[in-house]
Write a protein that binds this DNA or RNA. Structure first.
Lengths: 127, 127
DNA sequence: CAGCATCCAGTTGGATACTG
DNA sequence: CAGTATCCAACTGGATGCTG
């Protein structure tokens, strides 16, 4: 399909650039919802987050936080020289995203049973 | 870290089971937002979707549709014997998700510039 | 037309070990 | 305590060819 590579590439680019998709991608990152949820309760130290989001490896925790920081959703502040103390908190931009997260959560909790039922039915029909 | 495998595994399971995360995962699937968007305009044939979501490979289109169908968000109906005709449409459950998608879209379009600005600033500071 | 199967490259994310 | 660096297994998603 060499003749259509350009078209395909253009489409892929435009999809990647789609704001909705980009936001969804970020929100869907495995640990983002948990971290954002923690931070919505106020600033948290790195260690606190590590404990609260215990499933995440150290690498993923930092990596995810960096990503959120890069996108301006989370702010990082450092203090202390000996006993280092790093704190993360939501930015105004991050806070503005919370209602959207909440909307997702509300829908999810309200309809997850229907989804599960649909899955069972589907899987049963297939097998 | 063999001693904590159980704990870790339990956490990972609970995260995977988290309704919010599951929904976010589905919504974040690369082609879901585009497909759902198409279907919100009414039923579409497979071919129509293939054209509208031209970036997706045939495999991914079908795979994504199956996933949505499995989760009860989309319904598939077949008709015709010779010239096969397969149509997809949103279920009631799928329609109930659209406002959430819209909320994400609205936030995204409204704030993507801030995100981009934050990124540029972050990247500039790092380098 | 709609869909399935296979192969495979690129990415993701976890384990582990080490630094200031 | 917070973070970095490396290695690597698993998963994702695209290309291609075939079927009813």
């Amino acid at each position: 399909m060499a003749e259509r590579d350009d078209t395909r590439a253009a489409y892929l680019t435009s999809v990647a650039a789609c704001p909705t998709h980009r936001v969804l991608d970020r929100m869907g990152d495995r640990w983002v919802s948990l971290i954002l949820n923690q931070l919505s309760g106020g600033p948290r130290r790195h260690g606190e987050l590590a404990r609260a989001v215990a499933g995440a490896s150290q690498k993923m925790l930092t990596q995810t936080l960096r990503g959120l920081e890069r996108d301006g959703l989370v702010a990082r502040s450092e203090s202390g020289t000996a006993a280092r103390r790093v704190e993360y908190r939501l930015t105004a931009l991050g806070e503005s995203l919370m209602p959207v997260m909440t909307a997702v959560t509300v829908w999810a909790e309200r309809h997850i049973d229907e989804v599960d039922a649909a899955r069972s039915a589907f899987d049963a029909a297939v097998s």
